[in-house]
Structure formats: C-alpha cells, structure tokens
Nucleic acid binder design. Structure first.
Lengths: 221, 221
DNA sequence: ACGGTATGCCAACGACTGTTGACTTCCCAA
DNA sequence: TTGGGAAGTCAACAGTCGTTGGCATACCGT
C-alpha cells in the first residue's frame, strides 16, 4: 500500500485526443504551441508553467523541452508577433484613424497573442524588449507613412500605442467591466477620433486654452 | 577551508544603516515597506521575492513574515492605493480634461506605486481585482461628478482609464522610447483634449463619417 | 521477421520559493 | 544584578519550477 499513484492528468480543458494513440511530430508540435499560446495569454510568462502547458497538450513536460529546447525559446516562437498591418496608402487622410482602429479590433478580438505579450512584457524584461521591438519595427514605420511630418512619426506612434495598448490592457487584461461590456462598434466610434487626432492633427496647443491667459506652465498644476 | 561563507549581502541599492545597530520596530517596519514598494514596482508581485526585499532592507527574510504575516499581506499594505483625486467641482466643464490629466501627472511622475500595481495586475488575479476595485470606488465616482448624464459615467470612466493607464503602461512599464522622452507638459497638451472628449462630448457618432454612406457596420471591416 | 528510429513516459536533480520555529543578542525595568 | 521581552539571525521544511537522461513502446523500411 505504498500509494505511489502518479496522479492522473484529469485536466478538463485539455487537447482532445483519443486515448493512447500516437501523433506525428508536426501534430504534437502544433498542440504544444497552441497550449502554450493559451497559457501564456492567460497567465503571463512566469505563471505559465511548462508542466501546465504539457498537461493541456496531453503530453509529458519533457516533450516540450525536446521540441522547443527551453521555456524561453518556446515563448519566443509562441509570441511570434506580426501585426500584419494592411496597406492603408489609399485611405483618405481624414479616415486613417477609423481605418487603423477598425483593423486593430478585427485583429485583437479573436487573437489572444496580444494579451499574452502584454502580461509578459509587464514583468519580464525580455518581454518588454520584444514589445519595444514590435513598436519600432512594425507600428513605427506604418505610422510614419500616415503622418505629415516624418520627424513627428515616433512621437505620434507612441501616442497611438498608448491609446490602443490602453484599450487592450483595460479590456483584455484588467477586464474593467465598462470596457468589457462595450461593443467593438461603439468602442471604434469613441476611439477613431482620438487616433485620427494623434495621427494627423497639428501639434498642440492648437490655441491658448480658453481666455484666461495666466498659468502658461501647466506641468505641475 | 569548508568555504561555508553565507554570501554577504552586498547589494548596492540597500537601505543605509550603520553596521550592526538595532532599530526599533517602527523603523524596520517602514524600511521593509519601502523596500517592498521598490521591489514590487520594479519586478511585479511574482518576481519580487521576500528574500530580495529583506536584503534591500538589510534584514532577515523571517522578519518580513514576523511584521507582515505573509507576502500577500505585505503587498496589500504596500500597494495601498489612494488616487487622492482632488475636488474638481469648481473647474469649468470645458477644462475638466486638462485638470484631470495635469493632476494625474503630478501624482505619477514621483510615485512608483502605479507601475507596481500595473505590473502585478497584469499577471496576478488578486492584483487585477484590486485594480477593478480602485476603478469602481475611486475613479468611477469622481468621473460621475464630471459627466453630464450619470448613466454614461461608467463607460466614460472606462475610456478615461484606457487612455491614462495606456500612458502609464507605455511610459513607465514598457518604456517605449517616444513615450519616455516626451515631457509631461507636451504629453498633457496631447492628452487633455482626448480626456476632455471622453468626459464631456456627446456620444459618437457625431456625424455619419464622411459622405460615402455605405458600410454602416464597421465592426468587422 | 527484424532492427532502427521516431515518439513518448518516468523519475529524478538542483535551484529557488514562502514560511516556520528555535536560537542568540541586546536593552531596559524592577 | 537579574530577568523578561523585543529585535534579529540561522537553518531547515515542504513545495514548485525548469531541465535532464534513461527507458519503454510503437511504427516502418528492408
């Protein structure tokens, strides 16, 4: 009565696979990758354990190492991130904000990669570096093609990122109720003017705020 | 020559305290709390270890437990978070955005509690719940006093949070270069109109976007 | 039929974590 | 002077993690 039962895996949310059959290499590689994406998205890099990913893929943890070498390498390929920004060169300049916001929602609502990246980049330095790289190599150049003055592109791209990532954060990660309940269509109507302004409007201050001409310096209240 | 040296703590960023003197209870409690705030802000809940916090405070890890009971309890008191939103009831309605943005910057630029909360809420469910609580009990009511229609308060508060937290995320956590380099004053000029619109402007769409009247549904492109 | 190879499981290592309890050291009041 | 309690140290427990190597089983070309 040594009770040496190794605790059967009875995870309800696991890959569906007939009992005991063998899969070919490609299938398990894909299964691992899919489980990894889900776990990284739900828990972030640190809390997503190799053991949990393996359990979801109905496989031994050692197989993950065999196929992907290390956890860091697994994350690197799981979080391969291509914004796949479409060509917006034929969109009229005054509709760029609407086009960009619409596209980002069609991209995010069904893809949990961004929350995964967000969760990871918040705590993992390598994740943050990856986020900065995506910003520099993908969003940056795309925004550069939309703005009037190329010198202002990085700054405007940063502002766009602050609003779009803020929405992703509050809606998908923090799950603030009002941001979860609102429909994508309504959200697009609210956000499009903001993004449009960050992309195309002249640098503020447009006019000196209101009539009372004192307190020119608004930095520290 | 058993080499049993227990590895002296030679952390350069540790609490400065004369060698070997004893402190009273209050002093070490405060030292622990200060070290905890720094560590939680820099690393988030999971990666900030009790041992590292204790080392920063030049103290044994067991003392942290003696004074605060558990890591979760320590975080709870370290991340005690009061937005300390000022009374904006005498601010004219068309300057509320500017006032709110200005205030948030004077609050954040010198306080690392928000990054700590952000890093933690991204991965820790309890942290996310705390974030939602802050939103509901502090930002929500404050925004409710600023908007015209009380029924729209939660939604508008959510939009405000999405932009402000997005700035905190990109500037303090992800540290996207353009968002780090920009000065608070410039950032305020960019953000104030956005927040102002989220607070006070009528619900969009203001007008049917442009002339071409087709594609009413912009949800899925 | 057979041997090699691909696929997979099992048990364990070493490191690190939060947490605990016993022990030492010092100050201060009686 | 002497005890008691506060302040702090030390070593260890129990658990989890990424990672490793050895071993079993199934497939397939010859």
């Amino acid at each position: 009565m040594t009770e040496g039962v190794p605790e059967r895996a009875q995870n309800m949310v696991a890959e569906s696979v007939a009992g005991g059959v063998r899969r070919n290499s490609e299938a398990t590689r894909a299964a691992i990758l899919r489980a990894a994406r889900h776990r990284f998205a739900a828990d972030g890099y640190d809390r997503a354990t190799i053991r949990a990913i393996a359990a979801d893929a109905r496989i031994d943890p050692s197989m993950v190492m065999r196929y992907y070498g290390s956890k860091e390498n697994l994350f690197a390929t799981a979080a391969e991130f291509d914004l796949r920004l479409p060509d917006l060169s034929d969109v009229p300049a005054d509709r760029l904000g609407l086009a960009l916001v619409s596209y980002f929602f069609t991209r995010w609502e069904g893809d949990s990669t961004l929350p995964a990246l967000l969760r990871t980049a918040s705590t993992n330095p390598a994740g943050a570096e990856r986020m900065r790289a995506i910003f520099t190599t993908q969003l940056g150049p795309a925004v550069a093609r939309m703005v009037a003055d190329p010198d202002e592109a990085p700054r405007r791209a940063g502002l766009v990122a602050s609003q779009l990532l803020g929405v992703a954060l509050t809606r998908y990660v923090l799950r603030l109720p009002p941001m979860v309940d609102i429909t994508p269509a309504e959200l697009i109507d609210w956000l499009a003017p903001t993004i449009q302004r960050y992309l195309r409007d002249p640098t503020p201050p447009f006019v000196d705020h209101e009539v009372s001409g004192r307190n020119r310096d608004r930095t520290c209240h």
